[in-house]
Every structure is written in structure tokens, then in C-alpha cells.
């Protein structure tokens, strides 16, 4: 009887070959029709990015610049198209943000440029692109990643916006800040809110959900930090805008109380203070300004130091400020006038105290992967069986 000897498979070099006419099928199955929740894509975070890169590597290997250009253009246009179609779905946007970043990191890691090869294994160095320098395409991908990031932030804000005032100020459990309810009622707030209302718990649950989705998609930790900083800013800005324009809040003692509470919060955990303080700064200034106004620090000094942080609407708050007892001073008319004059030439913002639409500039620090391309298994459910392993 003949003995069946299994033939040793030729070493897989971590490249994927496809026929030119299959390019549209490739981006359709891998980008346009891919479900971010599918089991297949969650096995290896960034899998679509790795597959695209392995296809690109083969086009580079056969020295076909037209195929390289065409694949990059199709992939980028497909990502834009899916984001146009499902741009209000956090999961989709997060998924393509992390995959676009991973693709960008791959283009750097395997560029052959020494500055990006420091953490590569010898095998990864062997897998570097051999014919083309794609530095310009990296720039385009980076621009795309910025657009996706901004879309992610907008998407997140749309979900958070309706929760913030209700959760932070009306059903909150931090005592002594909002003054909405009589003291006796405060502790009765349960974490299960009535229909249409939100609690601090529901905001935290929502933030947790954003975080775990991003982790599941393999989003770079440095990028997650930037998203969190932005979330923190939005929640702080919307809360503060609402809070400080409440009549009962516009008093010296309340302003001091906020300033003091925030100081305590940041002191509670010194490790986060340095990082958080930068983000908190805009939140701290309005009460500080009000307090400063009341203790007669010249308005020019305050404005010159901090003009970046507050809009002309600060004047509204200063005008609302009312002494609650005989020991409190009224904000001097001169102080308000000076501030008004100094801010007159500023472009009028529709925002109140803080610009809730502000988006911090984003960066995508290089984050190489230790994953070896030749070990990647492609699940059948991705429907890319027409790709040949090379």
C-alpha cells in the first residue's frame, strides 16, 4: 500500500495574493460588509488591517506600483464610505479608527525605515516592504485617522449630551453642589432612574461601555487616553455651563465651594493629578475668575493670564452674581466692564462659559505590534477565500 506522506507546506511568508479583478470583492468583504461584532474579527484585534497589509506586501513584492496605489485608494475610500453610512454607530467608528491606526502602524513598522524598526524581530525586518516608499500614503492615512477620531468624538458626544445635566446635576449623589433638591431627598436617588432621566451611574456605565468597546477593538492605549480626556472635558464643560448659569449658583460661597471640591478631587489621587490638571484647567477658571473678581484682583491680570479659557459669556455669570449674605461682596461694575471691554473684539461664540464643541488635537503615537504576520490565520467567515497565502 502506498504510504500517505503529508507534503510539507511551503513556508508562509505573511503575504496574500489576489487577482486584480478581485480587488473590489476584497474591500467589499473586508471593509464594507464586515460586522465589527463578528466573532472572526474579534479573534485578532486589527485583523482587517493586517490582512490589507499582507495584500499590500505582496503587491510590493511583485513590484506592481499600480496594484499598490489601487489597493490603498480602494481601502481608504471604502473606510470613508462605511463611515459615511454608519458614522453614528460608535462601534463601527471605533472599529475603523483602531484598524486605520493599525494599518498605519504596519506601514511604518514594515517601511524599512530604521526609526520604526527598533522593536522588530529579525523576521519582521525580513518582511519589510522591498520596493516602495509609502511615506506619502502614511500621511493620507494619518489624515483619515484624524477624521475618524473626530467622528468618534462627535458620536460619543451625541450619546453623552442628553445624559450629562440629568446625571451630573439632577440625579447626582455628590452633595452640596447642585442645590436642586432639598437635603432630605438627596440620598433617595436610586441608580435606577425614571424613564428619560439619567444618573451618575448611567453615565459611568456608558463610559465603561465606550472603554470596553475600544479595548475589544485593540485601540492603542495612548489613543484611549486621549478619548477619555476628551470625554472628561465634554462632561465637565456641559455640566459647568449649566451649573454656573443657575441663579442659586451665582454666589461667592458656591464659587469657592466648587473650587475647593475640585481641588480635593484632584488631590485625592496624586498620580492622576498631573495628567488631569491640564484637562481640568478650563473647568477651574470660571469660579476662580468670579472669586478673583470679588477679591478685586485687577481684571486685566486675570484676562491676560487666562483669556484662552473663557468666552464672552462669562460676563453673563458675573452679572448674575448676587451676594447671599451681608459678608459677601457684589462683583464690582468696574470689574465687569473691564472684562467686557477686553473680550469685545473676540469672535462671539454661541457657547456659554466653555466651548463644549472643543476637540483637543489628537496624535497617534507609533505602536508597533509583536504579532508575526506569518502566524495569522484567516477565519473562513471573513469570505476572503480567494486570497492565496504566499
Amino acid at each position: 500500500h502506498p504510504v500517505n506522506i503529508p507534503r510539507r507546506e511551503k513556508d508562509f511568508q505573511g503575504m496574500l495574493e489576489y487577482k486584480k479583478e478581485d480587488e473590489l470583492k476584497l474591500v467589499k468583504n473586508l471593509i464594507l460588509e464586515l460586522k465589527p461584532r463578528g466573532v472572526a474579527v474579534n479573534l485578532i484585534p486589527g485583523l482587517p488591517a493586517y490582512i490589507l497589509f499582507m495584500c499590500l506586501r505582496h503587491a510590493d513584492y511583485i513590484n506592481d506600483d499600480q496594484k499598490v496605489r489601487s489597493l490603498l485608494t480602494s481601502a481608504i475610500n471604502s473606510i470613508k464610505k462605511i463611515l459615511k453610512k454608519r458614522g453614528d454607530d460608535f462601534e463601527t467608528v471605533s472599529f475603523w479608527l483602531s484598524n486605520t491606526c493599525r494599518f498605519l502602524h504596519c506601514l511604518k513598522q514594515y517601511s524599512g525605515d530604521e526609526q520604526f524598526m527598533k522593536h522588530n524581530t529579525p523576521k519582521q525586518n525580513d518582511h519589510c516592504l522591498s520596493n516602495f516608499d509609502l511615506a506619502e500614503y502614511r500621511q493620507v492615512l494619518s489624515d483619515l485617522a484624524i477624521q475618524i477620531y473626530q467622528q468618534l468624538i462627535k458620536c460619543m458626544e451625541n450619546i453623552l449630551q442628553p445624559m450629562i445635566v440629568s446625571g451630573m446635576l439632577e440625579h447626582e449623589t455628590i452633595q452640596g453642589v447642585s442645590g436642586v433638591k432639598p437635603t432630605g431627598l438627596r440620598k433617595r436617588t436610586s441608580s435606577i432612574a425614571d424613564e428619560g432621566t439619567y444618573t451618575l451611574d448611567s453615565i459611568i456605565r456608558q463610559l465603561n461601555s465606550f472603554h470596553s468597546i475600544m479595548c475589544q477593538h485593540g485601540t492603542d492605549p495612548e489613543l484611549i487616553k486621549q478619548v477619555v480626556k476628551q470625554q472628561f472635558y465634554v462632561i465637565g464643560a456641559v455640566t459647568l455651563n449649566n451649573l454656573l448659569l443657575r441663579k442659586d449658583m451665582c454666589s461667592w460661597s458656591k464659587g469657592m465651594q466648587i473650587r475647593y471640591s475640585v481641588t480635593l478631587e484632584t488631590r485625592a489621587d496624586l498620580r492622576i493629578t498631573a495628567r488631569v490638571c491640564g484637562a481640568l484647567k478650563p473647568v477651574l477658571w470660571p469660579p476662580e475668575l468670579i472669586v478673583a473678581g470679588l477679591v478685586f484682583i485687577p481684571a486685566e491680570v486675570i484676562i491676560a493670564k487666562n483669556h484662552f479659557f473663557f468666552s464672552v459669556q462669562i460676563v453673563k455669570v458675573l452679572n448674575l452674581y448676587t451676594p447671599v449674605n451681608a459678608f459677601e461682596e457684589r462683583v464690582s461694575v468696574l470689574f465687569i466692564r473691564t472684562i467686557q471691554t477686553r473680550l469685545r473684539d473676540r469672535k462671539e461664540s454661541p457657547q456659554l462659559l466653555m466651548d463644549t464643541k472643543l476637540i483637543y488635537p489628537v496624535t497617534f503615537p507609533f505602536n508597533p505590534s509583536s504579532l508575526a504576520l506569518e502566524t495569522i490565520q484567516i477565519p473562513g467567515s471573513l469570505n476572503v477565500g480567494f486570497l492565496t497565502r504566499v
Partner: peptide
Amino acid sequence: RPPSRIRVLLKAPTLAEMEEMNIFEDEDSP
């Protein structure tokens, strides 16, 4: 150390220019 390989720089269009090379024309047209 071997000399680093010379790679050909591929000129890239901008994002907006890329969009004009729409690969999905058939689907998008009414």
C-alpha cells in the same frame, strides 16, 4: 550592516482627490 535598500517613493493623492477616483460609481449613481 548592509546598506539600506532604495525604495521608490510613491506619490499619493490627498484624501479629497482620492474620493474623486470613486471606485463605487455604479452603486452610488441613482
